[in-house]
Design a protein around this nucleic acid. Structure first.
Length: 397
DNA sequence: TCTGGGGTCCTAGGACCC
DNA sequence: TCTGGGGTCCTAGGACCC
């Protein structure tokens, strides 16, 4: 008999700030940006801030209107990653089968741990107490016979709660649930639910699988059919490795100047390559993303014959994708790029990449490292190394 | 209200091969 | 002559999650 625990830190970024800064405790804390920051959104709002109607993904400007006396912070990812590590360390003491879902949540396979930690209530109590004692943070917990139900249960117990769904009770638990609580049904799907008059999972439960498939498509229809019956969704049961690596940037003001956009693209390219060099993957697929001023978003991708090995070659391909896709004259609000179809690095095949490539790769690596320490310092040098990059006449160095 | 950044997965259609 | 069917790989776009 399998049993899973889903653990989710409460208002994670905001809680870390309140932990590190006692003067913020009891106050509405909003992490994501300062009130004047244009184009920023809320990452996390503390429970005090949520009372004002502030929530994740809300524009900071709106949050500032709703909660003018809030404590607004840009956030410190390095610190959050550090705290996350501490918490995951505690989790790992409760099960060797730890599946981290994101920076602030994880699944633990706790099947057969009763002899060690007692029944679910006690297990949960011990885990919550240990997280609190060792990290100062509170965590909400859900326990069930599959991950999907455990995840929904932890969400219902927030903050600082625990919700246990006994084996056999999964379907009954789902039936009464409002459709808004279905994990995996976002705003577009909620709109479809509304149009069909579906209010609780029971309304969906009434329909045969074929009907759901005809409304929602094959994969999603089957997913819903299973979900409302309390059966785990396949997607969450198996752990999948990393598939892509990307970076993007939204500009404070829309960019119209192609040289400026391409410079930003180069900067993003460096960020990706720096991260890519220290990971165990290789990739033959490159992609770009352009968001225009009206928020329409387009992309382009290309799969190459050989893996990308140098910054120069990456930028070369990204630039060509960009130039092939970009509609001149349109304002660009965001530019992004990345590498897809990540696969295990092939064992060193020296002859696959020429000697020039290898030399170039090493030079780039050292420049990227310097540039990571002193942002901007080496950028010009690198960009001038790239033969594809021509400066328009009159552009200053 | 004027919408971040980093990811995953699905769908539909086209190219190409046998 | 004017057209089958299956498989695989690829691209573009969209929905969703934290």
């Amino acid at each position: 008999m399998s049993f899973f625990l889903h653990a989710d830190l409460d208002a994670f970024y905001a809680s870390v700030e309140q932990l590190d800064h006692p003067e913020y405790r009891g106050k509405p804390v909003i992490v994501g940006g300062l009130p004047g920051d244009r184009r920023s959104v809320v990452s996390t709002a503390s429970y005090e801030a949520r009372k004002y109607g502030v929530h994740s993904a809300m524009p900071i400007a709106e949050a500032a209107r709703r909660c003018p006396d809030g404590v607004f912070l840009r956030g410190n990812m390095e610190r959050y990653r550090e705290k996350s590590g501490e918490v995951m360390e505690v989790f790992s003491g409760f099960s060797p089968e730890l599946q981290q879902l994101s920076i602030d949540e994880a699944f633990l396979d706790v099947s057969g741990t009763e002899g060690l930690f007692g029944p679910p209530e006690q297990l949960s109590k011990k885990l919550k107490a240990q997280v609190k004692q060792k990290t100062g943070l509170t965590v909400s917990v859900g326990l069930a016979s599959n991950k999907y139900i455990a995840k929904i249960a932890s969400g219902m117990s927030k903050p600082d709660g625990c919700c246990i769904i006994p084996p056999g009770g999964e379907e009954a638990f789902m039936l009464e649930l409002p459709v808004g609580k279905i994990w995996g049904a976002g705003s577009k799907t909620q709109e479809v639910f509304r149009r069909h008059g579906f209010k609780t999972c029971r309304d969906i439960h009434l329909l045969p699988q074929e009907k759901l498939v005809s409304i929602f498509g094959k994969a999603y229809g089957v997913f819903l059919y299973r979900a409302v019956r309390g059966e785990g969704a396949q997607a969450f049961e198996t752990e999948r490795g990393t598939r892509s690596m990307s970076a993007e940037r939204t500009f404070l003001n829309d960019l119209y100047d192609e040289f400026e956009i391409e410079t930003a693209l180069f900067d993003i390219c460096q960020t990706i390559m720096f991260r890519f060099l220290s990971c165990p993957w290789q990739s033959r697929t490159v992609f770009i993303k352009i968001r225009y001023e009206d928020f329409t978003t387009v992309g382009a991708r290309e799969t190459l014959e050989r893996p990308i090995t140098t910054l120069n070659s990456l930028y070369d391909r990204l630039l060509s994708l960009f130039r092939g896709k970009y509609q001149s004259g349109r304002g660009v609000r965001l530019i992004g790029a990345g590498l897809g179809n990540l696969e295990e690095k092939a064992p060193e095949q020296g002859d696959l990449f020429g000697k020039t490539d290898e030399k170039e790769r090493r030079l780039e690596q050292s420049i990227l490292e310097i540039n990571n320490k002193f942002p901007g310092a080496a950028l010009k040098r690198l960009r001038s190394l790239n033969s594809e990059t021509e400066k328009p006449p009159g552009a200053r160095d």
